[in-house]
C-alpha cells in the first residue's frame, strides 16, 4: 500500500503558502517598498560588536531588544509595545504621517474591556460582541480578533490595520500623497463603508 505523506489539507496549505509568497511582494509593495525588513528586522545574522568603551567582561553587546513594553505608566495616546513599531515611521515628523494632527487620530495602547464599555455606555462589550471580521480570522469576539496583549484587552494600531494587507482592502479610498492629507484608513481588517469598522466597537 502506498503511504500517504501529505493529506489534502496539508497540500492545500502548502499551495496557499507558495501562492502567498509569490504574491507577497506585490501585496507588501503597497506598504513601503516590499521590504519585510522595514518592520521584521533580521536577528543575529551578524555578530554583535563588542563596545570599545566599558569593561570587557561586563559589556552589553547582546542583540538589542526592540520595542519592549516597558512604558509601564503609559497614558492614553502614548503608543506602547506593538504600536511603537508603526509609530517609528507613521508620525508627524515623517512624511508617512497619520493625518495632520495626532489629536484627531484614534488613541492606541489603552485597555478596552467590559469595564470600559460599561463606563462609557457607547461602546460594545468587546468580550461578548463579535468582531465580524470573518475570513481566516474566524468569527471571534472583538477581544479575540482585534485586541492585543496577553489579556487580549489592548487596542493597538493593528486592531484595525493589517499591515500585510491580508484582507486586500489596500490603501483605502482616502489615501492621499499629501502628508498633511489622507485619512490613513489603509490596510483595514474589514471594510469601513458606512463606518462599519468604527461601529464594530462604537454604538453610534
Amino acid at each position: 500500500m502506498k503511504r500517504k505523506y501529505l493529506n489534502t489539507n496539508t497540500k492545500l496549505a502548502l499551495l496557499c503558502s507558495a501562492l502567498f509568497l509569490m504574491f507577497a511582494s506585490t501585496a507588501f509593495g503597497l506598504h513601503y517598498d516590499g521590504k519585510c525588513r522595514s518592520c521584521h528586522t533580521p536577528h543575529n545574522a551578524l555578530a554583535s560588536e563588542v563596545p570599545l568603551w566599558g569593561r570587557a567582561d561586563a559589556v552589553m553587546p547582546a542583540p538589542y531588544v526592540q520595542y519592549t513594553s516597558n512604558t509601564i505608566n503609559a497614558t492614553m495616546g502614548d503608543p506602547n509595545g506593538i504600536s511603537k513599531l508603526c509609530m517609528g515611521c507613521h508620525y508627524k515628523s515623517t512624511g508617512y504621517g497619520l493625518g495632520q494632527d495626532m489629536r484627531n487620530d484614534h488613541p492606541v495602547s489603552f485597555t478596552y474591556d467590559a469595564a470600559l464599555a460599561a463606563a462609557d455606555g457607547r461602546l460594545w462589550d468587546p468580550e461578548t460582541t463579535p468582531s465580524g471580521i470573518g475570513g481566516s480570522v474566524g468569527d471571534g469576539t472583538i477581544a479575540q480578533d482585534m485586541l492585543r496583549g496577553v489579556d487580549h484587552n489592548q487596542l493597538e494600531c493593528v486592531s484595525c490595520h493589517e499591515p500585510h494587507d491580508k484582507y486586500g482592502y489596500g490603501r483605502g479610498t482616502g489615501y492621499s500623497d499629501d502628508p498633511a492629507g489622507g485619512d490613513g484608513l489603509a490596510y483595514l481588517v474589514k471594510l469601513n463603508d458606512a463606518g462599519q469598522l468604527c461601529k464594530t466597537c462604537h454604538r453610534k
Partner: peptide
C-alpha cells in the same frame, strides 16, 4: 552599518 539588524553596532531604524 550595512543592513537592518538587531546586533549591537548595527541599526534597525
Amino acid at each position: 552599518g550595512d543592513s537592518p539588524n538587531v546586533a549591537a553596532g548595527s541599526f534597525a531604524r
